[in-house]
Simulated scan of single mutants.
Amino acid sequence: MAVPDFQSFFLPMLQLSSDGNVHSLKEAYEALANHFKLTDADMLEMLPSGKQAVYKNRIAWARAYLAKALLLESPKRGVFCITERGKELLASKPVTLRVQHLKQYPEFVAFHQQNGGADAKADTNDDSEKIATPEETFEAAYQEMRGNLAAELLSLISANSPAFFEQLVIKLLVRMGYGGSIKDAGMAVGKTGDGGIDGIIKEDKLGLDVIYIQAKRWQGVVGRPEIQKFVGALHGQRAKRGVFITTSSFTRDAEQYVATIDPRVVLIDGNKLVDLMIDYDLGVATIERYDVKRIDSDFFLEG
C-alpha cells in the first residue's frame, strides 16, 4: 500500500506505547511499517529533497503532534512514552484519531494557533482527508515555485538569439567550475563551417584538456543522427569529450547511442539546462531564504 498520511499514524503510535515502556523512533519506524504492511518500495519513497524517507518523516511528525496534545512525552531526544492522558484516551477505545480530535486539548489548540494552522484543512468533517507534514507542504511549494521558474527560464532562452544561447552555455560551464574565468575558459565558435562545434571550453584552469560543445535551440526532439554528426566533428578534432546541449529533449535512441561510444559525450536537455542554471545561480536571483533548523542535541549535553 502507499504510505498513509501522517494523521493515520496517530492511533497506531499511541497503541504502540500503551505498554507504558519507553520506545525509540527506530522501533516506531519498524513497528508501524509492519502495521501498515509497507512494501520495500513504500519505505524507499523519499521526500523531494531526498534527505528523508516519507514514512519516517510522517511517523516523526505524528509523534510530535501527539506530544503537543500531551498524549505522549519524550524523556529524552529520540524516545517517547505514553502519558496518563494518552492512557485515558485509549481507554475510550477510539476508532480513529485525527488532528480534529487532538483539538479537544487546549495545549494542542495553542500549538495549532501559534503555528498558523498549517493543517487547518483537517478541521473538517472528512476525517479521511490526507494532510501533508510541514516538510512535505514546504517542499511541495518549493518544487512548484522551482518548476514555474524553470519553465520561465526555458521560455526566455528560446526567445533569445542562437549567439546568446551559445554564450549562456559557456557561462554556465564556467559557473560549474570548468575553465576558470570567462575570458580564459572558452570560446564560442558558432560559425558556418565550424564542423558541428559551437564552443570550446577548458576542462580545468590549467587547460590540460578541452571540452567541445554543441549548443542548439531545437524545435523538435534531437535524435541519433544529430548526435552522430557531433561525434563525427569530435573525431575530426581528435577530441575526447563533448557536451551536446539543447533547449529541447533527446530521443531514447540518442541517449543509448552516447552510452556506448568513445569519445565521451554528455547530453543536456532543456529541463536539465534550466535546473543547472537554478542550481548555479545563472540568470536567477535569490529573493528570500528560509533556513530549516533542528535541535543541536550536543549543545544540551552536560559535562
Rank of each mutant, 00 (worst) to 15 (best):
K56H: 15
S161Q: 07
W218I: 00
E288D: 14
I245P: 00
R294G: 12
A185M: 01
S158G: 10
V22Q: 13
T251Y: 12
K171P: 00
H23C: 09
A215K: 08
V243T: 06
V22D: 05
G180N: 05
L168A: 04
A69T: 13
K121W: 07
K26I: 13
A150Q: 11
G179L: 06
Q219C: 00
K240I: 15
P162E: 08
L72V: 09
V174Q: 05
L156N: 09
G270F: 06
I201S: 01
G117I: 15
K37R: 15
E166P: 08
G270R: 03
F300T: 10
K103L: 14
Y257M: 03
L206V: 14
R175K: 15
N148Y: 11
V174R: 02
Q143E: 15
A120T: 15
G186P: 00
E107W: 02
R58H: 02
A163P: 00
A118G: 14
R58G: 12
G190H: 09
A118C: 03
Y29G: 00
V95L: 12
Q113G: 06
I245G: 02
V79I: 12
G177Q: 06
A215Y: 09
D296K: 10
N21C: 08
G186C: 05
L153G: 02
D198G: 07
Y29H: 06
V109R: 10
P225G: 05
K93Q: 10
F300C: 00
G195S: 05
V189K: 05
Q143R: 08
G20S: 08
A33Q: 03
K183G: 00
K121H: 11
Q100S: 14
S297V: 13
A163T: 12
G20I: 00
F230M: 04
A53K: 09
A122Y: 04
R98M: 08
F244D: 07
P94K: 03
L14Y: 01
